[in-house]
């Protein structure tokens, strides 16, 4: 399957981020890495608006996890975009993201049974032969101090409290590259992926919990 990966690399014109020297490229790819960030901000009216920081945060998380997993061989999803942008492959990634959020429900966090990409993982294997899919996802809702002050003043009338509705959550979900089943789900609250340092701290926390 490695020749397919190499063909994909050539087709996309990207040098895939397979770590290590040329000898390690003959080893199977350990991780397909996917980073995803969705940052929104709260307006004084209580609306949620998508924030422009999302792309930067995705890049920061990607850089951080590349550093943390520097001893592993991995492929970054974003660097094989042509293959993964095909609709059936994109659907598998969207399902992985949906699963990551669903597992957050308290009754599921200790029981990962039933969470799987199903046939979607076979679709992804046509882009890269990997042993595990690692999805790191970051959701945050932020408000400026001005918005918080305004919302607190109006909370009695509107019920909206920007301070209360702020949150930040980062998850690491690892799926089996053969069966598609979810193997690991770790999530941490707080943190800010908008800066490289913030993203690095978040990824460090996730990996340290994973190691335990």
């Amino acid at each position: 399957m490695l020749h397919i990966l190499k063909a994909c690399m050539m087709a996309t014109g990207f040098a895939l981020a397979v770590s290590g020297n040329s000898q390690s490229q003959e080893m199977p790819v350990e991780f397909l890495l996917v980073s995803d960030a969705d940052i929104e901000f709260l307006t004084t009216r209580g609306d949620f608006r998508h924030a422009d920081w999302s792309d930067a945060a995705e890049g920061n998380l990607e850089t951080a996890i590349r550093t943390e997993l520097s001893g592993s061989r991995f492929v970054l999803l974003s660097q094989a975009a042509e293959c993964f942008d095909q609709d059936n492959n994109r659907q598998a990634i969207l399902l992985a993201k949906t699963i990551a959020v669903s597992v957050d429900e308290p009754r599921f966090t200790d029981d990962l049974e039933g969470f799987t990409l199903g046939a979607g993982v076979a679709q992804l294997q046509t882009c890269a032969d990997f042993q595990k899919l690692a999805l790191i996802s970051h959701d945050a809702s932020l408000a400026s101090s001005g918005t918080i002050l305004a919302s607190v003043a109006a909370a009695a009338l509107t019920g909206f409290n920007a301070d209360r509705d702020q949150y930040s959550r980062t998850r690491l979900d690892i799926f089996d590259g053969r069966t598609g089943r979810l193997m690991t789900h770790i999530d941490v609250s707080g943190g800010d992926a908008r800066s490289e340092e913030g993203a690095a701290r978040l990824v460090e926390r996730l990996i340290s919990e994973w190691d335990q």
């Binding site: 659907q91 598998a92 399902l95 949906t98 990409l117 199903g118 046939a119 979607g120 598609g180």
Partner: peptide, 9 residues
């Protein structure tokens, strides 16, 4: 349900 896996399941 998502078309991928969950609907059929």
């Amino acid at each position: 349900a998502p078309e991928l896996h969950y609907y059929d399941a």
